[in-house]
Every structure is written in structure tokens, then in C-alpha cells.
Design a protein around this nucleic acid. Sequence first.
RNA 1: GCGCCCUUAGCUCAGUCGGUAGAGCACCGGCCUUUUAAGCCGUGGGUCCUGGGUUCGAGUCCCAGAGGGCGCACCA
Length: 497
Amino acid sequence: MDTPELGVREAELIAARRANLAALRSAGADPYAVTRYEVTAHAAELQRRFADLPAGGEADDRFSVAGRLMLLRGQGNVAFADLWDESGKIQLFFKSDVVGKERLKAFQKHVDRGDLLGARGRIVRTKLGELSLLVEHYEVLCKSLLPLPDKWHGLVDMERRYRQRYLDLTVNPAVREIFLLRSRIIAEMRRFLDARGFVEVETPVLINIAGGATARPFQTHHNALDLQLNLRIATELYLKRLVVGGIERVYEIGRIFRNEGIDTKHNPEFSMLELYAAYWSYEEMAQFTEELFVHLVGMVTGGKDRIDYGGRSLHFARPFKRVRYLDALRERGGYARADLLSPAGAERIAISLGIPKPPSHAHALDKIFEAVVEPHLADPTFVMDIPVLLSPLAKRRADDPELTERYELFIANMEACNAFSELNDPDDQRGRFEEQAHDRASGDAETPPPDWDFVTALEVGMPPTAGIGIGIDRLVMLLTDQQSIRDVILFPLQRPL
RNA sequence: GCGCCCUUAGCUCAGUCGGUAGAGCACCGGCCUUUUAAGCCGUGGGUCCUGGGUUCGAGUCCCAGAGGGCGCACCA
């Protein structure tokens, strides 16, 4: 961002802080020269440890804390300040006869809200019951030169919250909580997978053929090779190559890029967990999915099996509800299999539902399901046995080859994951790629070009395998009760100013 | 890409029928030894998103543009 032109008033606010910076420097305490501070406790730790300290009580141990000053309450010969570190808040209590008259005066004159401060002293609880560090010594660790947003309302403007997330995180503790929880959720997923023998790998982001999903890729160029490249739209085809290579349980948590629209559930770059387990069918994968989701719900709720999302209570009780894809459409809309599985029939139903001219059979079927069934899928529900025409990489059911061994898990009317028994018949895979190539040739830009090397890998032989993809951002939305994907992505895409 | 809405002080927001711009907090000066958005007294602070237009006169009405939010379309 270019240096913005400042209003007169804002320039004055900054000048006042720069004057305080100069005063600190001339007193030999240049905050920008500080290289370290011995932190011996975090706020939350002290709050826990001294939870039983009575009002008016004092502890003997001395602690050093460091963090940002978010609230200053000065008085003549005494002062209070709220200091926030990553863990939470602790009040600092300055008394002139403890910290020294001159040091208190210097604090009141030259330290600003927003400055980073290190403070050492004993823990006390004030008469009014607030646990506090009675400051014996303090040090300004960094000067904040810009005025902070409103101490009460915080930063509300959505645009600034996304563009200047550092400010959002600084003044809105609830936002910081969401992102810390996101980090814990992902760490817990890794622990869960590692404990079950899954191997984490990294597959390429820059690839020639962006397959494994239907989406427009971002395009880029490699100069030295003079090569057009795409950013990946899925990790699927590379992870399955690794199963071919003998890595029986493999996963990747990685960024995926899709050149599509932006809304409350879509960001052009997003995070996905994909994992593959050799010798599992989609049945084992469904069990595994339940276990993982229940585990994560328990983690964020402290052992409960319900979460609140958007004002609704969602129940994560095993076994999750199950419904077969075609049964759901019959029960909810009275539609017959023969109609749904024929291009003309599906188009007729789509039009009767007011869906504008679907470009393909698959598109029509997808839209019908979205309109008829999805609104009813609040509690976690597996939608099983999805037609092969929607599932180019899934294995057919042996007893019903028009359907696949595939399920999607819906939670809060959102697709939370997509899993199937992986197609490992190279001839079937080649045939489906050929069909896709035909679609692509007739103008469908979202269908990827065939990845023939993947077919070669299947010819080497992939064991029977089940795989799953879980959108991490949406999972975090569910677990943190956020209605917009931008509120679980630290730096969501914004137009440059 | 389409539709609706938003943009006023550092922050959060008012601004009536078109008549020279308001509050709270923050900041600055003063008082205060137990505050919790501390309190009290006082001072200062504006490219009303940008550019046009209508009008004697525009924060306000009209047009165009920028950025953002929500919905639709696309998608996960």
C-alpha cells in the first residue's frame, strides 16, 4: 500500500507518539533497540495459577510478563493497564512507592496504548478482585506509532479487518481465538492421522495437467523451461500415484487453487485434507470419517457431541445418518431413478424446478440434488452411492454399475467431505477420461484434460483403496461457528486498492 | 458477471425537508494512591470514498467510477 495521505488529526496522533518515542530514546531506553525480554509467565497461566488468591492477597514469587497494552487507566500516584499476550489478559498495577515516582511518571507520560511492554513484579489481587502484576520494573519493548482502533468497539469495518488482519487480531481477541483454534484443529487432525499410521507428504502445486476435480485452474508460466503451468485444483491424482508406489496410508494437508467466484463459502485458495488408505473400502472410510469428526467436535467442545452453528444445534452422534443418493431424491421430490439417470429426464426435472438450462446431465443432477435434498441435511448425514456420471474417479458398485461406492458428508447443508472407493481399473479410468476429453473439446472449460500418466500408474496397479477429501476451511467454519470463509482465512483475497 | 446495500474525525457512529459538520471514545493540557470502556475540568481535530451534474446553495438529489458487504450465477 502506498503511504496514505494523513488527515491533520491523524498526523497529530502520530506526532504525539513519535514525541514519546524520542523521549524514551533520550532517556536511554530506545524501544527499537531492545533485542530480548525474559518472559517467565503468560497471562492465562497466571490467572489459572492464582485463581484462588483472595482479594487483597499477595503472592511472593516474581514474574515477568510481556505483551501489548490495550487499556490504560491512569491516576495520580497509581496506574492500571491491561496487558494482553497471546494467552489472554493480565492487569498491571503501578504504585509510585513500588515502581518509583519517576518511573511511574515516565510511564504515564511516554507510554501509549498499543505499546509492547515487559513488566516484572509480584502477583496481587486488588481490593476489587482483579488479579494484577504489581509492577516493580518495566521496559518498553516496542513503540506503537499508529493510533489503535476504538477500545470498546474494536475494529468493525470488514474491509480493514481483512486487509489489515494484524489490527483485527490486535484489538479483537475473539478473532485471535478463532485462528488459534484453527491451528489447534489442524494440529489435532495431524496427530489423529499420524497415530493411525498415515504418512504426510507434499505433492506439487505447479503442475502441467491440473486434474482430480472439475474447476478452472490458475495459469502461470515457468520462464526457464518456457512452460505453461497450472496451480493444482486437487491433490488426488498425485496421492494415488503414491499408493501405487506402495505408501499404503498417505495424506496431504495443502493449499488448493480454483479460479472461481468468491463468496461466503468460497475463496480462490483454500486448504484441503486428502487422504488415501489402501485395502479400505468406502465403508471403512465412513467409519473413519465419523471417528475423526466426533473427535474434533469433542476437542473444541470439551467432550460434547453437539455444536452450535448459525443458531442451530448439530448432533454428532455415531452412527451418522445415512441416505442413498437416489433414495433421498425419491423421498424428498418423488423423482424416479430412470428419469434422474437419463439426460432428458434430468433436464425435464431441472426445468420444472426453475433451474435455468443445465449444460450437462451431471450439472442438472447436481442442481436437482442441491435444490431438493440439501436444504434438509443439517445434522451430519452421509449421502451414499452417488451415480457414476457425477463421479469420474470413483469405483462402480459391483451390484449396480450406474452407481459408485462414494459418499458425501453433509453438515449444516454444506458439503463437508467427499469420499469413495477409488477406481483402480485402468481401462474404466481411460474410458472416463476419454469422455471428459470429449466434454472439454465441446467447450466445457472446467473439465480437466486427461492425465494419461495417471492411467499408466493404474496399469502398474493400485491396490483397492478408499480416499477422502475434507475442506479444512469449512470444517473450521463449522467448529468455530463462523458464517463466512473469510473469517477463518487469515488473509482472504481482496482487490488491491 | 448481475442485483441490492454501505463508504462522514484516528475508531465507533448520528446527520430531519437541500441551507456553512455532530456525539462518544481516542489524542493534547490539568486534577486524582484500588481502576475495570475509570472519573472530573478544559483545548484542538473533517478531501463527508473519487469525478462529473442539477441548484442561489449538495454530506443529503442525479450520473459515472473505486473499494467493501450480502444475495444470485459459477464452485468446494
